[in-house]
């Protein structure tokens, strides 16, 4: 067991994958000498060379498009998109090429590309640095979308994503990069939680709070506070946005009868909306109250001095819980 921040855990996961498989290579802007603007790839170019850790031209379509081509040649490229708001120049390559190539070729072509990006807000930065685009990608058939919340999961899920034969969008909670957690690097393959399983982090009986990525800590904090008032919240870390582990969520909701989903992304057409629909379809008669969602507003991400009012807070989570319990 090693204690390390999420950024270091991803770095260690990338290193492990690169040591295991010489076909794994990293591509991105400033990821080599600088080690990435968040230092996630720190030291990897020095150890693996410029042929495996590529400082690319500043062109996101180029990063993803050429990664796809290298994947066709048998390589396993891991792309870093420097900031979430800069992924859109690559959107066409991701949606029209990467996501569809396996289906278009009737399974003859495989494009195991991982696209990593920092996601979510709360870092006080300028625009295009704090967005949560997970639903845009989860809506696209052919892609997988994962969003770890802890150092341990970050270490393992980045390796699982690289091993996946499908393209994976790997979102990293940027405001949690430097939060430390225990990482068990010695697990055997069979002991690692599978990539797309949700995990119950705290048991409770009164309501289920589902969170993922940066909002998991928020949900746990809210649950601790609620417990002081005698309300027992069950906290589920989704871990994966596509596919969604609806089974784990419905199992919990069948016990608690209430569901609150917490996300940073705008609510409309989002992860919470999808979960609400699926949970309603599967266990409508177990629900004691309408599903509540807490998240960003239907607005362009606001300026940094306002973001604390835009992002979900413990108070907003507890308000939603209260409304669910009152119903």
């Amino acid at each position: 067991m090693e204690r390390m921040p999420i950024a270091k855990a991803i770095n260690a996961g990338l290193r492990a994958a690169m040591e295991r498989d010489p076909r794994v290579l990293l591509m991105g802007e400033d990821i080599g000498r600088l080690g990435g603007v968040f230092r996630v790839t720190d030291g990897l170019q020095k150890d693996f060379g410029e042929d495996r850790v590529l400082d690319t031209p500043l062109a996101e379509a180029g990063i993803v498009g050429t990664a796809l081509g290298m994947a066709l040649r048998g390589y396993r490229p891991v792309c870093e998109i420097q900031f979430n708001g800069f992924v859109y120049p690559a959107f066409s390559q991701i949606v029209t090429q990467l996501a569809k190539l396996r289906a278009r070729s009737r399974g003859r072509l495989s494009v195991p590309v991982v696209i990593r990006m920092p996601a979510g807000g709360g870092i006080g930065s300028v625009e295009h640095h704090s967005e949560s685009p997970e639903a845009l990608f989860a809506h696209v058939p052919g892609l997988r979308v994962v969003y770890p919340s802890s150092a341990h999961d970050a270490y393992w899920t980045v390796q699982q994503s690289i091993a996946s034969a499908d393209p994976v969008l790997f979102l990293e909670p940027e405001r949690r990069y430097w939060e430390k957690g225990d990482v068990d690097t010695a697990l055997a393959p069979g002991e690692v939680t599978s990539l797309h399983r949700a995990r119950v982090l705290r048991s409770g009986t009164d309501a289920t709070v589902v969170a993922y990525g940066p909002t998991v800590k928020l949900a746990l904090d809210a649950a601790a506070e609620a417990a002081e008032d005698g309300t027992q919240l069950e906290v589920v870390d989704l871990r994966s946005i596509s596919p969604l582990d609806v089974d784990t969520v419905t199992e919990s909701v069948r016990r608690t009868g209430r569901l609150v989903v917490v996300q940073e992304a705008p609510l409309s057409h989002g992860t919470g909306a999808e979960l609400a629909a699926q949970v309603t379809e599967r266990c409508f008669y177990s629900l004691e109250a309408p599903v509540k969602r807490v998240g960003g507003y239907h607005l362009p991400y606001p300026a940094a001095r306002v973001e604390e009012h835009y992002l979900p807070t413990v108070d907003r989570v507890l308000d939603a819980v209260e409304q669910a319990l009152a119903a």
């Binding site: 042929d51 180029g62 498009g65 050429t66 796809l68 081509g69 290298m70 040649r73 048998g74 090429q97």
Partner: peptide, 21 residues
């Protein structure tokens, strides 16, 4: 490829793979 020019970057990436091979 029907999306205009979308095959060009993958072609370059494939060529970069050829180099690495």
């Amino acid at each position: 490829t029907l999306v205009i020019a979308a095959q060009m970057l993958p072609a370059v990436g494939y060529a970069m793979g050829v180099q690495r091979d």
